[in-house]
Design a protein around this nucleic acid. Structure first.
Lengths: 329, 329
DNA sequence: TTGTACGCGTTATCAG
DNA sequence: CTGATAACGCGTACAA
């Protein structure tokens, strides 16, 4: 079903079809013609060819959502579903991809999808951001990142989660805290941003660096790694984790090791995943109303796509980050 | 960077560039020309434009992976990562999308991505499969489904997980079992296939239908729903769940209700998610070496894409489905 | 007010 | 054995 066929059915030229269906401004087409075209399009089930459109316009209508490759809880899933709906109303569509991606797979993604925007639930390192811009991505929404954000890049929640975690642990009397992240081949930018945010708060209490534990996903290996780490870092009485999945593994590993939570080791996670209330003790965590942000993301992306020259906010604060205290702290 | 520029740099025509870089058979181009072209392409960092290619060829090189919209664990995440790599080697790329999708979003996905193949970690209902075929998708790999598979559709693991769960529960002496699935607006085809598989095994023991509990994701609501359901179904002494996330919520809800697991209620999950060993009692589950299947999926998709007429297997058995017995049964 | 014609980058057909 | 050239479907400048 092509635009020409619709034009033929409506008795107009292909150009008119394009004008009508795209609501092209500056064209004075009588309402009667418009309805005839729209009706024909609807009747024939006309769907514009995305490839032809992309080729002509020079960009696709696709936004890529980068999700953590460590698995992806219902919390994040809901977020992406919301984003998908919001973007959909604005004529954009969302597909997901696991992150972080190595340079080769990133290039492949950019080449095959040529997204107009990227929303990352993970941090993006500078090289990735640079590659995205070079590939023509109009707007990037992500969390942490080392340098200053570019004009077309928006950051959110860079430090709020870490700050909330550290403040909570301090308020519970802890003076030396650590960070637990997933062990992985390539370091994640989110991990680094979180560590920096924790340190900023703990520096006030005299802590000079944040010890980091790389936790393997395998329960046996995790237990061992935690045991060794706790011996090596005897001053650490509490840990913040990158997310609640990691926190859950810490708590259960501690249980097996005979390490009392929260007495010997307090644990605070992040994002309030469903797993929080499944483990014993239940996980304290930091949650934020990210769902609220999603609508703004969509609007910002739409704006950036529609009007390339419009200025973007370089940062969106997550002002709703709040501690949910449960049994693990 | 376009093919024409490469052609100019190499002193050949654009057509020759296409022939060389695509290894088009039936063309006798001297090795010297080939190397010259390849060199120029590499030097200039040529990346073919996917939109133009899609427009010309009539399909994209993208495969869509449908993932459960309830969130998915590291187990599925790993699977998709493996699939992504396998497809990548075959010149195809993978993007993810939450499923099930309503008809509107499905159409949008098909229009914007125009995938050449679909791999679903969830079941696909018949309408969806029909829509996929109509949109020109060459091959669909999915789990359950009501009717018989189409020639271009491959099913895997339709009943194996359910059969293994039911057999395990029977071997533990249970004669009346139920199925627990996520409460959701639209029924999932996976859920229906699982129920049928369970019934097939339990029919031998005289069970005539499988009571189903729709579990809300919210812990409080889940606890209440489980309590009511157990009162309504006093004969049920064990449940199989759709996956380990659901199973974990059942176990923790039972704990809060004072229902002893496994004595009053045995619980067996599926897929061996990491959450299995995080809850008490640890979850019995059914696992299969799906990673092994992934490579075959990729090969089958590649085959179907490369040679439209080649016959596909209509079914791939998951012969490695095995029970992992832990504390919950 | 509407239609014609061109170009986006690629691949396939068909002369040379 | 090689390379012009047309065509894919759309959007838009310009002509009618």
């Amino acid at each position: 079903m092509t635009g020409s066929e619709v034009a033929a059915a409506a008795g107009v030229s292909p150009a008119t079809v394009s004008y009508v269906l795209n609501d092209t401004p500056g064209q004075s087409i009588p309402e009667s013609t418009r309805t005839r075209v729209r009706e024909a399009a609807a009747r024939l089930g006309y769907q514009p060819n995305a490839a032809a459109r992309s080729l002509r316009v020079g960009r696709s209508d696709v936004v890529v959502g980068l999700v953590p490759d460590t698995g992806y809880s219902a919390t994040f899933s809901d977020l992406m579903l919301k984003l998908s709906r919001s973007l959909s109303e604005l004529g954009l569509s969302l597909v997901l991809h696991p992150a972080p991606l190595d340079p080769v797979r990133l290039r492949e993604l950019l080449r095959t999808i040529d997204p107009v925007g990227v929303v990352a639930l993970t941090g993006l390192d500078d090289d990735t951001v640079t590659a995205l811009q070079a590939a023509g991505v109009r707007v990037v929404v992500g969390t942490a990142g080392a340098g200053a954000p570019r004009a077309w890049e928006i950051r959110f929640g860079a430090g709020e989660f870490g700050a909330a975690q550290a403040q909570h642990l301090r308020s519970r009397g802890h003076e030396r805290i650590g960070l637990v992240r997933w062990a992985r081949d390539f370091p994640s930018a989110t991990d680094q941003g979180r560590a920096a945010a924790l340190l900023e708060v703990m520096a006030v209490a005299g802590q000079t660096h944040i010890p980091v534990l790389d936790l393997p996903a395998d329960p046996g290996a995790a237990e061992q790694a935690l045991g060794v780490w706790l011996r090596d870092e005897p001053a650490v009485t509490a840990v913040a984790t990158m997310d609640d999945d990691v926190a859950a593994l810490v708590v259960s590993s501690a249980d097996r090791l005979g390490v009392a939570v929260p007495d010997r080791l307090a644990v605070v996670g992040a994002y309030d995943f469903p797993v929080c209330t499944l483990v014993r003790p239940a996980l304290s965590t930091v949650r934020a109303d990210l769902g609220d942000l999603i609508g703004r993301f969509a609007a910002i992306i739409h704006e950036a796509v529609a009007d390339a020259g419009s200025p973007l906010p370089d940062r969106i604060a997550v002002d709703t980050a709040r501690v949910v205290a449960r049994g693990s702290t």
